[in-house]
Write a protein that binds this DNA or RNA. Structure first.
Lengths: 197, 197
DNA sequence: CGCACAATTCAACACATGATGAAAAACGTC
DNA sequence: GACGTTTTTCATCATGTGTTGAATTGTGCG
């Protein structure tokens, strides 16, 4: 019930901009792009809608601002790739969970995935992200025929993302990271290096 | 450029209702619930928006009408479950693909999944569908500790759904059903019956 | 203190959308 | 052929949304 009514600047030095950005991230993560309204973000930050426009311009701009996260997939994957194919499945999964379980970046990543799957931004993943970023990284880890193995790895990882972070089915959320690594890691390893039927 | 202008009933006996329903299914599958507008559905069916309301009432009603599909998961899963745990992974996957690759039901299923992941209908899957429908069916196929195994199976199957039908990444779409069965089936079997680490 | 500047709200516009009710045209039946 | 019924469009409304510009209040600097 923090009744905020008066016009003009607030006393003190509150970082209102950061609050708005956090509210936007949370809303984009939970409701997706279309489901998020500027008014709702403003209300959740205890602020007038016009202020959102003042800081971040249009709604699209707000969205890309909310997706700004300090994680470059190629950089994160580099050490995993450098260590070679032995035990790559578990290493891959461990670093992956290290990023996704970080509460600092999780909302932005979930928002990104939600938008990819609800709106037709799917093309971005389909045509650019996987072939350009993920594909080459995994390609040096697979035994052979990467065009057949990479999609399998991706499918299991995507399933993990959706069940653990997007839909958040309870047993998957409750599972400790190391347990996920121990149970799914071998499957990734299997997709990467075992003989294909 | 089929200029349709005149008022009143059309000559002939066109099944306009079915066309509207098909357009709605396609739009819900591609753009999700929020992304679908009554006007767009009407335009895609070459019809006035009011007609959509005339046949199916509100937008929610149209959505549930679009989701009406002649497939009961328990009924489909019954024979798979009845045959016991031996080779259950591949059988499960085969019948699963039989349903999802059917172009008659695919749009409705994709629409359902899209809505589950974009809007917060996720609760439906999280709290009802998996525990009540999928859980008990799989429970009789697993070796032990179903609460640990079922989520693993679900994660791989969800990953398959998303990559093959929702985001539709090309290598996954192009893969023949039997190849999917041969490559992912053993992994499901592993989750169902192999020793858990 | 005075003043430029930043932060914040208010009021309003333009637009798209879901929904409604009445009117017009074809059909089926007697 | 007359008539009730179904199918279809038109015109319209209320609402929520993104966006804009002006007005107001606090902060920091000279």
């Amino acid at each position: 019930m923090t009744a905020r009514a008066s016009r003009g600047r607030r006393p003190g030095a509150p970082d209102t901009r950061a609050e708005v950005l956090a509210a936007a991230r949370a809303s984009f993560a939970e409701k997706g792009f279309r489901g998020t309204t500027i008014r709702a973000v403003a209300a959740s930050a205890g602020v007038d809608p016009a202020l959102v426009h003042h800081y971040f311009g249009t709604k699209d701009d707000l969205f890309v601002a909310a997706l700004q996260i300090p994680v470059d997939p190629r950089e994160v994957l580099a050490p995993v790739v450098a260590a070679g194919p032995d035990g790559a499945g578990e290493r891959l999964l461990r670093t992956f969970l290290g990023v996704w379980d970080d509460p600092e970046v999780q909302p932005a990543l979930v928002a990104l995935v939600r938008s990819i799957m609800s709106d037709d931004t799917g093309a971005l993943v389909r045509d650019a992200f996987i072939p350009v970023v993920i594909g080459p990284a995994l390609a040096s880890l697979v035994a052979d025929r990467p065009e057949a193995r990479v999609p399998l790895v991706v499918s299991q990882v995507v399933g993990l993302i959706v069940t653990r972070y997007v839909v958040a089915i309870p047993p998957m959320v409750a599972m400790p990271a190391e347990e996920v690594v121990a149970r799914i890691g071998p499957v990734l390893q299997h997709y990467l290096t075992d003989d294909l039927p």
